[in-house]
Amino acid sequence: MEKNKNIPTFKTPKNYFETFEERLFVKMAEENFPKSTGFKIPKQYFENFDARILKEISSSEKPKKVIPLFPRKYFGYAAAIAASLVIGFTLFNTKNNTSTLDSLQLAAIDTYIEEGNLNLDLYDVTSYIENEDIANIDLDAKYFTDSSLKEYLFEIIDTETLIDE
């Protein structure tokens, strides 16, 4: 038994591997592939092919209905909702009840008048003051200290005007 151990028992015929590929493809073609192509082209199909294509294209040139991605009516709805939200926030946001005149700073009003944007003379100002307002003025009350009044006058009025008067 030991002598026959390394002797191969399988043998191949002569030229088996040289012609294997050719025989395999022939066998596959005979078994799996159909004998005919299965497609038939009508007679003179390619002679009038261009004319038929142009005829179909010209007949199908009807305008197609385009459906927009975002219809316009939705933009109107969105605008109405946004407007109602803005109005709602402004009406119901009553945390700041200060009027616009109260919120103005006195310095801003003073600057506005000094720049000459308010063209009122003494007669215009007195026309707005009523007799009751003049009677209610307390002349004895001191709204400013003497030192602050002097400082204000020296800052505003130039020295030449003080010397002339």
Rank of each mutant, 00 (worst) to 15 (best):
K5I: 08
I7K: 10
I7E: 00
P8D: 06
T9C: 03
F10Y: 11
K11N: 11
T12I: 06
K14I: 01
Y16R: 13
E18G: 08
A29Y: 12
E30D: 09
E31T: 15
K35W: 03
K35T: 10
S36D: 12
T37P: 04
E47T: 08
N48L: 02
D50R: 12
R52S: 02
I57K: 05
S59D: 08
E61R: 15
K62D: 05
P68D: 05
L69M: 10
R72C: 06
R72K: 15
K73L: 04
A79F: 02
I81K: 15
A83I: 13
A83W: 04
L85G: 14
V86G: 04
I87S: 05
G88K: 01
L91C: 07
K95G: 12
T98F: 03
D102N: 12
Q105T: 10
I113W: 05
E114W: 04
L118M: 10
Y123T: 07
T126F: 08
Y128R: 13
D133P: 02
N136E: 06
I137T: 06
D140C: 02
Y143H: 10
Y143A: 04
F144E: 00
S147A: 11
S148V: 07
L149D: 00
Y152G: 00
L153V: 07
E155W: 09
I156Y: 14
E160P: 03
E160L: 06
L162D: 02
L162M: 09
